[in-house]
Amino acid sequence: MRITVTVDGTKYSDDVEPRQLLVHYLRERLGKVGTVVGCDTSNCGACTVHLDGHSVKSCSVLAVQADGSEVTTIEGLARDGQLHPVQQAFHDNHALQCGFCTPGMIMQSIDLLADDPDPDETAVREGLEGNLCRCTGYQNIVRAVRDAAAKMSGGAGPEAERVGESQQVAGGGN
């Protein structure tokens, strides 16, 4: 079956098997290996991408279902050498350890922030509940999402607040 799909701003037309999963099409045909194959059962969220602007687990979507759609992968987020604000927040807040879940976490976080630009900690945890991380304990991931939200809305974010707190403790503030 022939599909036409725009991935990370580039249009592709390819013949695919009707049963081929979107995650395998992205990785094997297009070389988008930042989209990780985790569990193949849609439980972990490592394969999360955006399909027409909304996050989906690409291991639960057939490539033919993406025909005529726009897909954004983790590789398509950075612009002109600048990381997306959520990518930058994950870096700044040390919100990764092994990095396996990170692409899916970032993609889901962007979708979460599109729906709720100022989530509290509970909203972040609930918004990411379909994405699993076995390394970080989620504290830094939650902090990164809240930091990105603040920076994307023009605020300083939790990272700047922690710097201010550490300056006060060190005698640098009141």
Results as ranks from 00 to 15, higher is better:
residue 85 P to Q: 06
residue 36 V to K: 15
residue 128 L to Q: 12
residue 101 C to V: 11
residue 155 G to V: 05
residue 128 L to F: 08
residue 88 Q to I: 03
residue 59 C to V: 04
residue 42 S to R: 15
residue 72 T to I: 13
residue 98 C to N: 10
residue 157 G to W: 01
residue 133 C to W: 11
residue 111 D to R: 10
residue 158 P to A: 12
residue 54 H to Y: 10
residue 107 M to K: 02
residue 49 V to F: 14
residue 19 R to W: 12
residue 19 R to F: 11
residue 157 G to N: 05
residue 59 C to E: 00
residue 99 G to H: 14
residue 146 R to G: 07
residue 120 D to V: 00
residue 114 A to M: 04
residue 70 E to W: 00
residue 75 E to W: 01
residue 23 V to Y: 00
residue 108 Q to L: 09
residue 78 A to W: 06
residue 156 A to Y: 08
residue 144 A to P: 08
residue 154 G to Y: 10
residue 133 C to Y: 10
residue 24 H to T: 09
residue 103 P to S: 09
residue 126 E to Q: 13
residue 146 R to T: 07
residue 30 L to S: 04
residue 154 G to V: 03
residue 91 H to C: 11
residue 86 V to H: 11
residue 72 T to N: 05
residue 45 G to F: 00
residue 16 V to M: 05
residue 53 G to P: 07
residue 127 G to F: 01
residue 108 Q to E: 12
residue 20 Q to S: 06
residue 73 T to H: 01
residue 39 C to G: 15
residue 45 G to R: 07
residue 160 A to W: 10
residue 93 N to T: 11
residue 95 A to I: 06
residue 113 L to Q: 11
residue 110 I to L: 10
residue 88 Q to F: 02
residue 128 L to K: 11
residue 84 H to V: 02
residue 79 R to S: 10
residue 19 R to H: 10
residue 73 T to Y: 02
residue 109 S to R: 15
residue 133 C to H: 13
residue 86 V to S: 11
residue 75 E to G: 09
residue 79 R to I: 04
residue 98 C to F: 01
residue 148 A to F: 03
residue 105 M to T: 09
residue 77 L to A: 04
residue 70 E to N: 07
residue 45 G to N: 12
residue 69 S to C: 13
residue 116 D to K: 01
residue 101 C to S: 14
residue 35 T to N: 07
residue 99 G to I: 09
residue 19 R to A: 07
residue 133 C to Q: 12
residue 18 P to Y: 03
residue 119 P to H: 02
residue 139 Q to F: 12
residue 107 M to L: 13
residue 104 G to C: 13
residue 97 Q to D: 14
residue 52 D to Q: 04
residue 160 A to H: 09
residue 150 A to S: 11
residue 70 E to C: 02
residue 63 A to F: 03
residue 133 C to L: 12
residue 36 V to Y: 15
residue 86 V to E: 05
residue 64 V to E: 01
residue 103 P to T: 12
residue 28 E to G: 01
residue 112 L to Q: 10
residue 28 E to P: 00
residue 43 N to Q: 15
residue 114 A to I: 02
residue 63 A to V: 07
residue 42 S to I: 05
residue 51 L to R: 09
residue 43 N to W: 09
residue 24 H to M: 06
residue 78 A to S: 14
residue 66 A to V: 12
residue 146 R to P: 08
residue 156 A to C: 06
residue 48 T to L: 05
residue 42 S to T: 15
residue 133 C to N: 12
residue 146 R to F: 02
residue 83 L to R: 06
residue 45 G to I: 01
residue 37 V to S: 14
residue 26 L to Y: 04
